[in-house]
Design a protein around this nucleic acid. Sequence first.
DNA 1: CTGAAAGCGCTTACAG
DNA 2: CTGAAAGCGCTTACAG
Lengths: 366, 366
Amino acid sequence: VKGNPESAIEKRRATLTRVAEELGVSPMTVSNAYSRPDQLSPALRERVFETARRLGYAGPDPVARSLRRSRTNVVGVLYSNPLSYAFDDAAAVLFLRGVTAATEASGMGLLLVPGSMGAPERRGSAAGEAAVDGFVVYSMADDDPLAEAALRRQLPAVMVDQPRRDGVPFVGIDDEAAARAVAERLVSLGHERYGVVSFALAADGHAGIADVVRQRSATYRVTRSRLEGYAAALSGAGLSWEEVPVYECPSSTVALGRTGAQALLDSDLRPTAILATSDQLALGVIEAAKKRGLSVPDDLSVAGFDDVSPAATATPALTTVHQDHAEKGLLAGRLLVARLRGEEAPEPDLLPARLVVRSSTGRYRF
Amino acid sequence: VKGNPESAIEKRRATLTRVAEELGVSPMTVSNAYSRPDQLSPALRERVFETARRLGYAGPDPVARSLRRSRTNVVGVLYSNPLSYAFDDAAAVLFLRGVTAATEASGMGLLLVPGSMGAPERRGSAAGEAAVDGFVVYSMADDDPLAEAALRRQLPAVMVDQPRRDGVPFVGIDDEAAARAVAERLVSLGHERYGVVSFALAADGHAGIADVVRQRSATYRVTRSRLEGYAAALSGAGLSWEEVPVYECPSSTVALGRTGAQALLDSDLRPTAILATSDQLALGVIEAAKKRGLSVPDDLSVAGFDDVSPAATATPALTTVHQDHAEKGLLAGRLLVARLRGEEAPEPDLLPARLVVRSSTGRYRF
DNA sequence: CTGAAAGCGCTTACAG
DNA sequence: CTGAAAGCGCTTACAG
């Protein structure tokens, strides 16, 4: 009954033009059926869809449409290597939740851009090859080639927990001030011997004590700022920052925090307080202390950073810096979406952060 | 010194063709400089890059390249609405971690496809408009328009925790058997009065008791299978499944689990055992029980499903079904990537799952 | 090692 | 309400 179905169902993949030919209308009419329903009669539109169904055509090709419209409706997210670690990091998960909420509210997709696993000659290529309208650059090293490649494309972008760049809005907290506040709290409790367990200063995988030179040249802004905050507080109390051992962990996990703490607790002049640049690391420090029979906070005070969910329920509950990671993501996402729409969207103020004192820190006891 | 830089830096956006004109070579040569370095001399290649830099050209446009190559190097992930909830769901986060590890290992990006928030006329359009080479369809309702739209595109796909479809490989566990095992465990402990707290049976936002008719017509396969497993175990023990109240929660959160448990514990014939289809819900059930002064497991046994990280550390620790969510994601991701490469990649066997008995379940006591 | 030409699949002014 | 034509920015056989 239908016109020559044998020849209609050809091998070549169904395209808009193919549907138009089959129905004897112009490609524009088929395009309109999908993209501008008001431009043709409902009856014709239905015939278009019927023909499309028959030919197995699922609608306009997204890539061709993007090329023509020069718009992908996708926001790219850049996160340090490897990308899959983002899902191990409670703060990153909350952040992504916020970004996703912002992008999906405006119908945009979120592309997680892979890092350049290994292959050094391809460093950054993934960011150069991502079909997106803009980028959220989250917590990367200052000199990360992936971020460089993304920024070079001159697309709208937002930097989060990153160094500032001209023309690129920044979203984040005042990490240095927050770190100073934690350290000052410990100073006020009478502690004089400190140790620091830090996440990466640079992306070279280094694990172990990081001297002051390495601290100053840290390429992760967040790490650098937090260490500077600690240093400011301790120096302000008349202590020598140079003598405070900073143990660097290549990433932010409980297991690495444990290792770092072990190294610090082995020293002759055992610290009475350990500052960790993340809650994950701090939880590892607490584990290491317990394993040696040290009581937290009686023998050792421990403070973290970020206030992710296990911090409040840990035993003892962790003294830390609270910040709203989901809100940070939401703000970054909305800012980018607004700019993509050409709306007025000024760089926001620094987000609030506050010291949360719980039971992992206590007064120094002889 | 350089040739007329004034006119070189024009308003129109830099393109490959523009760079070629400027340098007096063919577009193909510029293309080769980026994509096939072995096709031109290093010196010429350097001149191409130099000109590109001068014109602010950041390399071939990803969209145009994708159209020409008919390949995006992106895998799309579909998850129930709204997408941002995925980041609240510990199982989903682990799953995404696995998928991401698989895709990034082969240099592919991961696109989180937004649901059709509200706008019913656009139901599924996002999946139709996603520029991807293939889809991972994760835990969606049988009749979800987003999944329908994606599958209609005939791209390679993998279904996870979804109903099987011809030609589309399935990755998941035997949910029914696992649920049966949990319920049988409670039967063996002597329990006779049960309640169930379940996550959504359909995407209509229903909250409250779900009768057997609704249970049978559930569009979420996972929910349906788990309830069938419970029913099989209880029926097998001579109990009447029809009399077991099933409280349906629209999503899987601790707060909703609490609400569901309150409803069940209000009944005259209070259950002595509550089966929850997720750990989140189960943790809410435990909270509700505690709030009424009921001891778990002395007054009420509670079992969850999935064994996400808070399950083991909760008080009491949760009896549940363990499955490896990250492994599931890795497997699904690898399977899809292999198929995209045209490699031989058979549908895998069902993944293992096992009952983990902890202290939230105990013998029935009068 | 380089070029000219075709074409990936669409959408959009411009006309009628 | 519909059409013919141009063009989005690239890559790829095909030649030389």
